[in-house]
Design a protein around this nucleic acid. Structure first.
Length: 935
RNA sequence: GCCCGGAUGGUGGAAUCGGUAGACACGCAGGACUUAAAAUCCUGUGGCCAUUGCGGUCGUGUGGGUUCAAGUCCCACUCCGGGUACCA
């Protein structure tokens, strides 16, 4: 009886589906464990072998935890809104819902073949109205919320309105744009004087019109409408988030991106910067992901310093080096800085206007590409707050409008860019360091001793920082300040295939649609393109209004639906809430999250943000979504090459390719086995190769060359899991993907080794056979056999606990080899192994379990426990080394003392030989480890 | 530039707490079975020297250090991968 994996796997797949074997229900008597995979975007290309890597690892862990007695939530779904389906729709006119549906079907088919233990009754799709109803509801929560800096919490907007009613803005400490009142003054019909700087009384509030109140509140809301400079991609006709741009072009398609001011929905994620950084310490994530997030949020501690300029203008700068304040020799403003106009003198006007206009034309990408130093003098000066000196004010495009205050104090002595700027324009370079040579470059060390700096002389960064800040406060010229790089996230997309906003406009005032009326369904359109006038596709929809009032035409970005999906799995069919309180309380945080590291600054940041909002507002009892995360590495392809002799149809084997001038061509990896080309199959592959001739190696074979590259159709190196399941079975594929190496490591896919793993499963299967039929002995297992079993239990359990999936497979192989050598086919030894194998090879394990006479599924069996009595050995084989070199082995009873071990070693005949007549200086005995004789 | 990873046989990798480097598997070589091939099974397999056998010696990117003992810890460097950037 051979290992008939095709029948075994097909039968069990059917049975699992029929019995809904993987359905989980909330059981208060059992401890929960939540294992989650990052859900996929269902693309048209389907899965290749790289996709299931993480899914297999998490599935094994989920099954392991089930054996350990946990109630395991292990769901799967689809992140089904997205650009590719929309672009396909633009090309073909087919509704994106339809292609999405087809792709999902294909994904499901592929996933099912691999034997995952997903509870499919909990499947979610971000594009289904039942799901996005709650995405819209959460948007509403954020719209009706503000961020209170006093309690450091998100709070309902109604509380803010109450405060306004009572005391106006006084006593309100909200997170908002510091200069919000400037934009507010530009809004229509405000009631404030030109001296309004943000504070207003309850009387002011009460006297405001509805529209004025709403416009004011917009500055407080966590999700708000504002004019923002956005990354506009004309080719895609949409706005992109920073993390959707790579190297200055769109991540998808590689199109040019430009800066444009647009009225957009934004999310006040910047309010959460500090918590997003500090809470990283509370979660068990890979250190590199935490580091990427820390860098992305970009906390920097420094000071704000105000310089009094002419014409009543104050220039405020942010610096991380207030200690170098006395080295300021000029100020630099971003070309977009609001004071540029006022400060420019008549003589400089032409030059400045020219420079500013030029900067505007350049996209951020151009500015970056151009490493040239450029700038222009405004003609104005500002007063240095400490020295009282006149400091020239310059404009330079190395200063970014969007970071800090859009202005810097330039200290050429202490900052390389300021130094370069000063050199270029021949500006003063004041040496404020005692021992630094500034002839070549700036002094950037924080340990350098300050000089020419008045009361700071002799100090360095560490000692001067507080001293300067104190003085600035005394002079009212500045104060300590923490700055974050993280900016608010633009939430509007000019796309069709996304969640519509539950927003309509009443006389221009945005109004939220009530929860009872959600979902706001995505309307049908005649084409998936922007309108003639440049409005988003939804503007094409008929009746896209609410009682005549226009609906919002933007849709939400891809990260909206994925920011909270882990909560919906807990209660996917609930029609009255996004997930019930009891279920959220029961399932809690995701205990193990498996997915790619590429979402570090996108999905993983946004879902942490939304989780904090939901936590603050009391909807969930935890403020981090994913307790532990593991990133699976990328699986690369291994392309195969053949070498055609130039201007011929003759192919020469890899070994001899240098004998001729050759052209390297791709060969489909399905035509190659262990780098040997299947010549007949190759000839039949493409018509142009039908009459090909071959020059072979000395063994009469054609060897191919190879290279590791990304998997892609054009490289003929895509390996689908389906082919391997067909050839070797799902159990083999699962074990092999794990056997490849540590999950978190990127590695090339190589099918070479799969036969070894397949062989192992066959050998394991053979342990249960006698005379080619299933037969196990009920005899008591020998000590040697039990030792193998319990050693394996111990090893596998420890390895799974530390997420070392690959070494578990090795341990299984070793156990199988040893039991084969012992000719063991005893039930007592084999049953625990079947249970342990079931997370890795669930089909085979179920089959063997059934054949062992069990009527229940192996997946519910408890995990075996390693018993020490089987592991203890009377003797330990000591490696005896001399000066660290192992020379011989000595088997000694484990119980004896170190002194006895030493005596036995010294008495050994070989010891004399290796001592070479010398007297040992010292003898190190580590019990049950090693003996080292030092001479 | 800065930050974070990594480098172990022909290949993927193992070595969990500083304690026998190379587990397990692939590949390769030899053998058994076979008319032959496939499949299967057995043996060998880090380099060099020696080889009848015992063995010796070098060896975890490079150079140094700590230690009885270093792939593992420390210092300096080289190369590779990832993140990020006129971020003040």
């Amino acid at each position: 009886m051979e290992y008939d994996f095709r029948n075994i796997e097909a039968n069990w797949r059917k049975k699992w589906a029929r019995d809904e074997s993987y359905k989980v229900t909330e059981d208060p008597n059992k401890k929960k464990f939540y294992v989650l995979d990052m859900f996929p975007y269902p693309s048209g290309a389907g899965l290749h072998v790289g996709h299931p890597l993480g899914y297999i690892a998490s599935d094994i862990y989920a099954r392991y935890m089930r054996h350990k007695g946990f109630n395991v939530l292990h769901p799967m779904g689809y992140d089904s809104f997205g650009l590719p389906a929309e672009q396909y729709a633009i090309l073909t006119g087919q509704h994106p819902a339809k292609t999405t549906e087809q792709n999902i079907e294909r994904y499901r088919e592929q996933l099912d073949k691999i034997g995952f233990s997903y509870d499919w009754s909990r499947e979610v799709r971000t594009s289904s109205p039942e799901y996005y109803k709650w995405t819209q509801w959460i948007f509403g929560l954020l719209f009706n919320a503000w961020y209170d800096l006093d309690s450091n919490k998100t709070r309902p907007i109604s509380e803010l309105i109450e405060k306004f009613e009572e005391n106006g803005s006084y006593g309100v400490n909200a997170h908002m744009d510091e200069e919000w009142w400037k934009t507010y003054l530009l809004e229509a019909d405000h009631i404030f004087s030109p001296y309004f700087e943000g504070e207003f009384t309850d009387t002011d509030w009460k006297s405001m019109s509805e529209a004025q109140k709403e416009a004011l509140l917009m500055n407080y809301r966590v999700s708000y409408l504002a004019d923002s400079v956005v990354n506009w991609c004309p080719a895609l006709g949409t706005v992109l988030a920073n993390d959707e741009i790579k190297d200055g072009v769109s991540e998808r398609g590689g199109h040019a991106v430009e800066q444009k001011k647009m009225r957009q929905w934004s999310m006040r994620i910047s309010a959460y910067s500090e918590r997003l950084i500090s809470d990283l310490d509370t979660i068990d994530w890979p250190e590199n992901i935490k580091e990427i997030q820390r860098n992305w949020i970009g906390k920097s501690s420094g000071a704000r310093v105000r310089f009094q300029a002419e014409k009543e203008v104050t220039i405020e700068v942010f610096t991380t080096r207030p200690d170098t304040l006395c080295g300021v020799s000029f100020l630099t403003l971003a070309p977009e800085h609001e004071s540029v106009e006022v400060l420019t003198t008549a003589e400089q006007r032409d030059a400045v206007m020219d420079y500013v206009a030029n900067a505007k034309l350049k996209t951020e990408r151009d500015r970056m590409a151009e490493k040239k130093i450029s700038g222009v003098f405004t003609g104005s000066f500002a007063l240095h707050p400490l020295t009282g000196e006149q400091v020239p004010i310059w404009i330079g495009d190395y200063v970014l409008a969007g970071y800090g205050t859009g202005a810097v104090m330039a200290v050429p002595a202490g900052d390389q860019r300021d130094y370069d700027f000063a050199k270029h324009f021949n500006l003063e370079i004041k040496n404020i360091f005692a021992e630094s040579d500034l002839s070549e470059k700036a002094e950037t060390s924080k340990d350098a001793t300050l000089a020419n700096s008045d009361f700071l002389n002799g100090m360095n960064y560490h000692t001067a920082f507080d001293a300067v800040c104190e003085r600035l406060v005394e002079l009212s010229a500045g104060e300590k300040r923490v700055n974050y790089r993280l900016r608010d996230a633009v939430f509007s997309r000019q796309r069709y295939w996304g969640e519509p906003f539950p927003i309509y406009y009443e006389n221009g005032i945005p109004r939220l649609i009530d929860t009872e009326e959600l979902p706001t369904q995505l309307p049908d359109v005649d084409a998936y393109l922007p309108t003639e006038s440049g409005e988003p596709p939804l503007a094409r929809a008929k009746n896209w209004d609410r009682n005549g009032m226009p609906m919002e035409c933007n849709t939400m970005p891809g990260w909206a639906g994925s920011s909270w999906y882990f909560l919906r799995y807990m209660d996917p069919n609930n029609h009255s809430v996004f997930a019930s309180e009891e279920r959220i309380k029961y399932w809690g945080q995701v205990d193990l999250y498996m997915g790619g590291a590429e979402h570090a600054t996108g999905h993983l940041l946004y879902s942490r943000f939304w989780t904090k909002v939901l936590f603050d507002l009391g909807y969930i009892p935890f403020n981090e979504p994913f307790k532990k995360m593991i990133n699976q590495g990328m699986i690369l392809g291994r392309s195969s090459f053949v070498y055609r002799i130039k201007d011929s149809n003759t192919f020469i084997t890899f070994e001899r390719r240098k004998e001729f001038e050759t052209q390297r061509l791709y060969a489909d990896i399905s035509l190659v086995d262990n780098d040997k080309l299947n010549i007949e199959a190759f000839k039949n592959w493409l018509p142009e190769y039908a009459n090909a001739e071959f020059m072979l190696n000395e063994n009469g074979e054609y060897t191919c060359g190879w290279e590791v590259e990304k998997m892609s159709k054009s490289k003929y190196n895509v390996q689908t899991p389906d082919e391997l399941v067909e050839k070797f079975g799902a159990d083999t594929l699962r074990c092999y993907e794990m056997f490849l190496g540590p999950v978190e490591q990127s590695k090339p896919w190589d099918t070479k080794g799969i036969s070894g793993v397949h062989n192992f499963l066959r050998r394991f299967h053979r342990l249960f056979l006698a005379n080619e039929t299933f037969s196990v002995s009920s005899e008591e297992a020998t000590a040697a056999e039990m030792r193998v079993v319990h050693k394996t239990i111990k090893k596998i359990t420890e390895d799974l606990e530390r997420f070392s999936w690959n070494t578990v497979v090795s341990a299984f192989m070793i156990a199988t080899n040893e039991l084969t050598d012992l000719k063991c086919n005893k039930r007592a030894a084999l049953e625990p192994l079947v249970i342990m194998l079931s997370p890795y090879a669930p089909h085979l394990a179920e089959e063997l379990w059934k054949n062992l006479g069990h009527s229940t599924s192996v997946m519910n069996e408890s995990w075996p426990v390693a018993e020490n009595k089987f592991l203890e050995d009377d003797n330990f084989e000591y490696p005896v080394s001399f000066n660290g070199k192992t020379r011989f082995f000595l088997s000694l009873p484990v119980g004896i003392s170190a002194a006895d071990v030493e005596a036995q070693v010294m008495a050994h005949e070989s010891t004399v030989k290796y001592l070479e007549g010398k007297t040992p200086k010292k003898i190190i005995v580590v019990p049950k480890r090693i003996v080292n004789v030092v001479m």
